[in-house]
Design a protein around this nucleic acid. Sequence first.
DNA 1: TGAAATGTTGGGGCG
DNA 2: ACGCCCCAACATTTC
Length: 450
Amino acid sequence: MIPLFIADPKVRPGGPSAWWLGRSLASLQESFLRKKSRLILRRGNAPDVLAAVVRETGAAAVLWDESFDPVQRKIDEAVHAKLTRAGIFCGAFNDSLLYDPRTVRNKQGTPFKVFTPFWNHCLSLEEPAAPVKFNGKLIAPSVWPRSEKLESLGFVSRAQWTEKIGRCWDPGEKGAKAVLQKFLRNRVADYSEGRDHPAKEGTSRLSPYLHFGEISARQVWHETRQHMIADRRPGIHRTGEAFLRQIVWREFAHHMLFHFPESVIRPLRKDFLKFQWRKDARLLRAWQKGETGYPIVDAGMRQLWATGWMHNRVRMIAASFLVKDLLQPWQEGAAWFMETLVDADLANNTFGWQWVAGCGADAAPYFRIFNPVLQGNKFDSEGDYVRRWIPELSRVPARFIHQPWEAPSEVLASAGVQLDKNYPAPIVDHAAGRKRALLAYHRMSEQRQK
DNA sequence: TGAAATGTTGGGGCG
DNA sequence: ACGCCCCAACATTTC
């Protein structure tokens, strides 16, 4: 068996994702070496690379883990076509999802477009197969094919930010297992409540590991189920199920992307094609840099920049702010997230942004608009999250931490805050922004009727 | 996996 | 003691 990774230039990860992939491959190389095997690295057009490796080694079959995103699918098809023509056996298996998106259908035989029926349907299916522990030997070929150096694949960045992100994460399979065990031991029992408080570590933080396949959804599913049986803490069933529900949201997003690959660019609800966004590079830039003047939004955007990750509650708030308060196209936000997240995942990201923007198949209605002050008070009531990511506001009392512009001048002065000097005043008034968003939404709806 | 606007109820102050 | 008003507190509707 020849483990092989191909860096195909058609797949273009953002900076943090590329960094993660590089670290992940290094870790995978080590674990193959420990098993007296190797991980061969190549770069180039995947079908050509595979044909060359088959020629070099006389391999009889090529097996790979299937991915369902549009770019990868296209590559897989090309590989399959080229190799089968050459008489090579091809086999793809699904290790990234719990179920095969080609077979999950509702009673009408069409894909599910609403989450709850999808969830109920999944629960009615046979449980996904338990992962198999491999204890066997990896049989080495008589001659190993040539491998490129990991550094030459372009994933290893010398940029300064990688050092900072590196301190937050431990990519690789070992890290993934440790993170899951820690989550099940310490946090899953409080998941339903804890997951919404960004200052706490209440979420699983598994997203990048799941994205890169360092842990599979089936592993997470079965470990969690076992834990729910063994853990005697009250309420563990409810909170464990809330967590599994998130795993199935991921599943749903991947199935949706499989069935609607064009949703990466286009809104699923076609009336949104006519929505009047107010494209403004200045506003987009302020949002990206965490300079909107709304502390909970800015804290999230700065956490993203500093660590390659943002707490999910804050992702929703920040996304809502960009799309509704600033009326910027959701595609701009989605693109920024893909560039800056370590867990950048086309399916989850596309689904999430369409959900927030209200143009997804099963989305939040457009008139559901987050108020960043209320959300801040509700989920970061002490302001600890804001203080961690916006040091300029660290001395503002909790009463005003989510709306510093409302603080009396002496409070601001003693906290060392000068609005528009060391922290921006709000770039838009939320009440006015909300009204403007609703107006744009109504104009779109009227236009549809014409 | 909202929030704001609007409606309803009931207790207490007060003439 | 009674009725009126005010306004929390909660419920419902609307966006």
